[in-house]
Design a binder for these strands. Sequence first.
DNA 1: GTATTTTTGGAACGAGCGTTCTAGCATCCG
DNA 2: CGGATGCTAGAACGCTCGTTCCAAAAATAC
Lengths: 199, 199
Amino acid sequence: MRGRPREFDRDEALDRALDVFWDKGYGAAAIGDLTRAMGIGRQSLYDTFGDKHSLYLEALRRYAERRLVQARETFEAEGTPLENLRVFFAEWREEALDGTCGCMMVNSSTEVGAVDEAAARIVENTMRRLEDLLAELLERARTAGELTDLASPRALARLIVDAANGMSARSRMGLSADEVDDVLGALDAMLTVKARPAA
Amino acid sequence: MRGRPREFDRDEALDRALDVFWDKGYGAAAIGDLTRAMGIGRQSLYDTFGDKHSLYLEALRRYAERRLVQARETFEAEGTPLENLRVFFAEWREEALDGTCGCMMVNSSTEVGAVDEAAARIVENTMRRLEDLLAELLERARTAGELTDLASPRALARLIVDAANGMSARSRMGLSADEVDDVLGALDAMLTVKARPAA
DNA sequence: GTATTTTTGGAACGAGCGTTCTAGCATCCG
DNA sequence: CGGATGCTAGAACGCTCGTTCCAAAAATAC
């Protein structure tokens, strides 16, 4: 007596919804846009995901988790810490040039960050965890003698996160490869420079 | 036969509207919020500013112009280029710690940047001009021998703009002084470091 | 078969929005 | 004074949206 089974894949539908929210934001994504992209009917959406806000939070959590997992995998791959960081930079570069949507968490923080506490907490936690992961990686780089002593690993991690988020905001207006490479090159040079011993 | 004169100051009312848009964004700022903050009636708003979108663009232009003027004044003050840049950092620090709204242009770029072309153009032009001002300042710092040769003035300017915008996005979630100082300190150390001549 | 569940889609509700219209009152100029 | 303009406030329009209700069809389990 289990009745008719669901015809769509829940995770797949959630991914489609994620794409819509990522592109349009929360407010501008209408239910019609969502059901069309997800390939399901209104009632199925409400039965499966509750309401629009719940669906949004679930998509945002999914996005955040995916980002953290990717960063962790990159940071814990084989290779020196600095090499892994450069892979992270390369991934960041590709996303800045390809996608025109920016980082969904940055978008969320400015759109609903002031009103939606649940979303704000997700964004805040994720950014802090990403900062922690970066700080750990830089700590290892320092131990390995790969890192500049210009600033603490924590400070450098914070600068990198801010630069990434800032570029995400700019990526909406179309970034050239030069602009991205300038920023990444400056960061790279900074991280590896050895200060002159005596002024 | 000129009739009754306007009772409110147009610029002042525009500033109040700017505050509302800055705090709530475009979509979440209702006409009622605007008229209440501006201290005028609905009809006066429409007669004076056209409609909501025109008012928003005018407020955004005002904000952008104000930011550019402030940056230019800071950069062209007495003192060495690097001293002036540090004043810029101090102003940036204060805003990141005091205001919880972030930079209005960053907020605009994520909220309406995808839909509102007029707003996107304002943001884009302003950010480019700010980058240019920073690059000129850093160029002068280089000439004066104050600047690192780790990266070009243009690249450093782009990094600074991205870091500022990224911190703006984070400021919505409440930043501690440590977090801000970490980023500013790392940037400062980077800009002034002299690379070791030989490895 | 029956019972149960999911599907789809139409219809409607209710709320909020930007905007316009209207009417009445206030203030200025000539 | 009269004419013109600005202010206020209420009412209404039209639109979009999220959400719910409902009914009929389809697919499973017993």
